[in-house]
Design a protein around this nucleic acid. Structure first.
Length: 262
DNA sequence: CATCATGTTATAAT
DNA sequence: CATTATAACATGAT
């Protein structure tokens, strides 16, 4: 389920290994998550390094190890991170297990849409530095949002919100939540949307998710669409109308036909 | 057994 | 070239 806040929560799970040295590494060679990295090189190179910290950017994570070792992690659709006591890991879908001095850091991903990147360099990897401004940073500005809405005026707003190039970290449920707060249907053309409102709601939803899911995996505040959108039969927490689920651009979109009229 | 899934990307079609 | 649709990826949940 990893969107921005879920990613943040997962990253914190590896805090258990902060300051510890890598004793051994187990990798599932050939797993699809290694399509962007050499599993053997990673396993050999990581040993002996100290886990120093993690940086987050949208759905991307960058774990920093001593001596200029950078582990990039994307959780895809079903990826997750956890820490376990010594002897932990070994699960069917545990593709990377980093054995630290006192804990084992685990990356698991049943569907393997996630990916790992390993790079050794003095500074942060180039791909990391080229990421667009995060939606909760000062670089995410109203005029940039306005520019995107203008350039992509014909694109359905829902589809635009899912583009990581413009709204990094926003995923399917957050996009639906933002549209619901704006009282706009998913298919509304981006061109007619007010940039200021969109900018505000994107940040409000991201911040709210970080304060709940990102903090302790608790549900977002009562009254959010989040709690009602997952299955058929849900009702709008604002007006009580039955929620509609339909496919837009290959993804499920859930909206309230009452509040979010065309 | 059939359908669907909180993501991304390659390819085909328009 | 720009945009959109579709399939693919691999597995688990319903």
């Amino acid at each position: 389920m990893p969107e921005l806040a879920e990613v943040a929560w997962y990253a914190r799970q590896w805090d258990a290994g902060l300051g510890q040295r890598v004793v051994a590494v187990r990798v599932r060679e050939g797993a699809r998550v290694y399509r962007g990295a050499d599993a053997l090189v990673l396993s050999k190179s990581l040993v002996g390094r100290v886990y120093e910290g993690v940086a987050l950017h949208g759905k991307q994570m960058l774990f920093c190890f001593s001596g200029g070792g950078w582990l990039g992690v994307h959780l895809g659709m079903t990826g997750g991170l956890e820490s376990a006591g010594p002897g932990g890991g070994g699960g069917r879908h545990d593709h990377l297990e980093v054995v630290m001095e006192r804990v084992v850091l685990i990356f698991r991903d049943p569907r393997m849409f996630g990916r790992l990147i390993w790079e050794e360099s003095e500074g942060e990897p180039g791909w990391w530095r080229e990421l667009p401004p995060g939606v909760l940073t000062r670089g995410f500005r109203v005029d940039c949002v306005a520019e995107v809405l203008r350039r992509r005026s014909g694109t359905p707003l829902k589809a635009l919100l899912l583009e990581q190039e413009f709204f990094p970290g926003i995923g399917n449920w957050m996009a639906d939540e933002i549209l619901w707060r704006l009282r706009l249907p998913p298919a509304v053309p981006a061109g007619g949307v007010d940039a200021g409102s969109l900018h505000r709601e994107v940040r409000a939803v991201a911040r709210g998710a970080m304060r709940t899911i990102g903090r302790d995996w608790s549900d977002p505040p009562a009254g959010w669409l989040f709690r009602h959108r997952w299955r058929d039969g849900g009702t709008c927490p604002r007006c009580g109308a039955g929620l509609v689920r339909e496919t837009l651009r290959g993804r499920t979109a859930c909206h309230c036909p009452g509040c979010q009229a065309a």
